[in-house]
Structures are given as C-alpha cells and as structure tokens.
Design a protein around this nucleic acid. Structure first.
Length: 426
DNA sequence: TCTGGGGTCCTAGGACCC
DNA sequence: TCTGGGGTCCTAGGACCC
C-alpha cells in the first residue's frame, strides 16, 4: 500500500442551521443563537456564543431553558425547507471549484483538489471560503489533507482557528495537531470504539495513528482499521462524486402531545406514508418492503414502555400512496396495543428500486395501474404548485392535534413567496 | 410539562443447499 | 455408539455518521 497522494478538502459550514437563520435576521449576528430539533426537543445547532455559555449539543431544551432566559439566547425551531435550499446554493457554488465533489451531508462536502499545486493549496482554500461567504453568506471551515479522515481532522482544527483553513499536506506539524484531537472526535470513532480505545491507552488521534497495524486488524473491525490507516496517510475511503439514490426512506415524527387512540396513530402513519411516497416518486423509485414502528417515551419513569415494529414484503413493488397506506395501516393495527401513551410513530420504505426495473408479476392486484400513476402525478404536481398538503387523503386527518410543536419557527421559506420577509424601501 | 430525524454499512447467525 | 462440512444468501441489530 502506498501513501496517498490525493488532495482532499473537506468544506464544512459553521453552525449551519444557525448561519441560515442569521441570513434572514441580521439582528442575531454575533448573538448567542440555538436551533432546536423537531418538536423543539433538543439543541441541534449552536452559535459559538451559545457554545461559550455552556449549551451542549443534543441537550434537551428544558435543560438549557434557564441559560437561555438568563442570557437572552435566540431560539429557533428547525426549518429544513430553508436549510435544504441554502445548502443547494452552497453546493452549487462549491462545485465550481472542483467538479469532483462528494456532497457528504447537508452542510459538508469533500472536494478533490488534486489539480491544484501543493504550494497553492492554502491560498486556494481561502479563495473557496471567501467565495462561499460572498455568494451565499454562509461561513465555512476547510481542512485539506491526503485522505478523507485526515481532512476531517484538519477541518476540526480549522474550526478552532481564526483563519478557517488548515492544510495538512504542507504542514510540518501534523503529529502535533493530531495529538490535540481527542479520540472521540476522530471521524469514524463513536461511543463504543472510544471506550475500547481509552481502555487500551489510545486517547488522541495521534495515539491511534501510532498504533501497530497488526494490533488494529486483530482487535477491531474493518471500520476501525480503515480509520487508523487513513490517519497514517493510506487512502481507504475513496471520494464518491456520483450521487446515488437512497436505498431506504424513513419518515418519523414525535407527537406534540402524547397519543393513545388508534385513530390518531392512523392519521400520523398515513401522513408519514404520503410524505415518504412523494419523496420516492420524486426519485423515480418503487418500494418492496414497508416497516411501521410505534413507541412510547423511554423517559417517562413509572410508566410502562412499549415499542414495536413489523414489516411487510409487498407482493408487488409500487410507489402508489393509496396502496402503501393500506399496507402500513394493516401493520399498525397489528402492533398497536391499547393503554399506552405513544410518543412517536414512523415508517420505513426499503428495498427501493428504480421505476424502470418495475416488475409486473402475475399477482398484481392493481388493475387500474395507469390511472393510479396519473393520479399520483397530479397530486405531486398540485402540491408543488399550491404548497405542501394542498391535496391529501382524508385518513391523514384535518386537524392533526398530535402534530409536532414548532414554537420558535422563523417562518421563512425561500420557496414560498408568502413567507418571505418584507423589506421596507421607503 | 418538555429528550430529533434520516441515513449507511458491517457482522453474526440462521436457513438452506449439496 | 457413531450424527459432516462447506458454501451462499438473507436478515436483524448494532455502530456510526450528520
């Protein structure tokens, strides 16, 4: 195996959701800001000012409420329509710097910079950063290295530096920087591996880099050894510039209040089905397997916990909402138990395949298939044109009393003119 | 009162085959 | 009494990511 000669940049947006909210609300720039998860449950994005106040990632809102009130922290409910839209703009801009790009998540991308000369890498990084900020208003951090894992590490360091760009390829102090990264902050090392490594005296990224190959291979799985090898500078995880279609599609939500009635669970499952079906139709895919799950809150002490899920292998693959709802509700009735306070439901569509691999089989029960396909197209079109949920099915419920809470929504939707903020010109 | 949502990949073990 | 061995495929559950 040879040392990697790749030049990979990881571009990561700083406090992405917070930065998105700030774009439309200049008054919260340089103020402590927090974005909450669905149902206003947990903290999922924090500005540096909020971090400084001691607000931790993933903490439930009620636990940080005191800090929030005392320090006038600005709070926002998630607005994924907005974040997705801003993300697309960032990625489009990034792509101009390298067509060989892998979008890794909503706020990060790996860029192949192999065509850039070594001595120009740092400058190039700054150029990227400046352009993204100017064109989209989103601040980023950039790490450049020879493997993905090392560029992740470089990015981690860059986040703490004012310059915002770290180039490990020309750096003479890689090991010193790696020893500043705690083992649990290494990409690919989660809770379980952290426990194991610390037990064995491996406390930093540098410690892991120094570990003998044989020991890693013997004591961890392929994940573990891949990460260690990448830290040593051997490329094991390649850049994947081609966007692949998803292999499964999950829609789940916590309720705004506890739900006990089967009728209401049916409404939520139906709603999830409609959303997921729309997604996969948009990707030209069909479903073969449906999983439905329901659960009560695991945090309610003294109350009985119940969680269950079941799946069905469809006789014929489809992306027809009505059919998918029908089967999902059958599963739901199967796992529903009376007397519990349900907190969450969800559905997973899996074994997805492209529509053109469609396999008509002898047992097809949808005789009016063509009409159904047209109906679904009409529904999708209407919902794009007149807003989500313009057309739905009655089973999804009209009032949806169980619906998710979003008390702190900024109500900004760049795809919906009615919700755009006003600008006074006089 | 109040604890997110959406993914991927790996692995062990069972079912089944000859 | 003695009760194979090797292979494939599938799946559930775990670990990890953002």
């Amino acid at each position: 195996m040879l040392y990697s000669k790749n030049k990979i940049a990881l571009v990561d947006c700083n406090s992405f959701y917070v930065s998105c909210e700030r774009l439309f609300n200049p008054s919260i720039v340089k103020k402590p800001v927090v974005v909450l998860s669905g149902n206003d449950g947990c903290v999922i994005s924090r500005s540096t000012e909020a971090k400084t106040l001691g607000i931790k990632m993933g903490e439930p809102y009620f636990k940080v409420e005191r800090i929030v009130k005392e320090n006038d922290v600005k709070i926002f409910s998630t607005n994924f329509a907005l974040y997705g839209d801003i993300s697309r703009r960032v990625m489009k801009t990034l792509k101009q710097f390298s067509p060989q790009m892998e979008i890794y998540s909503i706020d990060e991308a790996f860029l192949d910079l192999t065509s850039v000369k070594n001595e120009n890498l740092l400058e190039h990084g700054h150029e990227i950063r400046k352009t993204i900020l100017k064109w989209t208003g989103i601040p980023t951090s950039i790490g450049i290295a020879t493997t993905k894992t090392l560029s992740k590490a470089a990015n981690y360091i860059a986040k703490k530096e004012k310059s915002g760009v770290i180039d490990l390829i020309n750096s003479k102090q890689i090991d010193k920087l790696l020893s500043e990264i705690k083992i649990n902050d290494v990409w690919g090392v989660g809770r379980q591996l952290t426990k194991f490594y610390i037990r064995n005296g491996i406390n930093t990224a540098y410690d892991l880099k120094k570990i003998h190959n044989g020991w890693i291979k013997k004591n961890t799985n392929v994940f573990g050894s891949r990460t260690a090898m990448e830290l040593k500078g051997f490329s094991c995880i390649s850049l994947e510039p081609h966007e692949e279609k998803r292999k499964s599609c999950c829609v789940s939500r916590s309720f705004g209040r506890k739900v006990t009635k089967l009728e209401e669970l049916k409404e939520s499952i139906t709603t999830h089905c409609l959303n997921a079906a729309e997604k996969i139709r948009n990707d030209n895919q069909t479903v073969k397997k449906i999983t439905v799950f329901i659960k009560t809150s695991p945090f309610q002490i003294g109350k009985k916990y119940y969680a269950n899920s079941k799946d069905i292998d469809l006789p014929i693959r489809t992306n027809d909402s009505i059919t998918l709802i029908k089967y999902s509700l059958i599963i739901l009735e199967n796992i529903y138990k009376e007397g519990y306070q349900y907190q969450k439901t969800g559905i997973i569509f899996s074994k997805l395949k492209d529509v053109n691999i469609y396999n008509k089989n002898l047992f097809s029960t949808i005789n009016n298939e063509e009409k159904r396909t047209k109906l679904m197209k009409a529904i999708d079109y209407t919902n794009i044109k007149y807003g989500r949920h313009a057309l739905s099915v009655a089973q999804a419920g009209f009032k949806k009393k169980w619906n998710t809470r979003r008390r702190f929504s900024s109500r900004i939707d760049t795809a919906c003119f009615d919700l755009l903020p006003f600008v006074k010109t006089s």
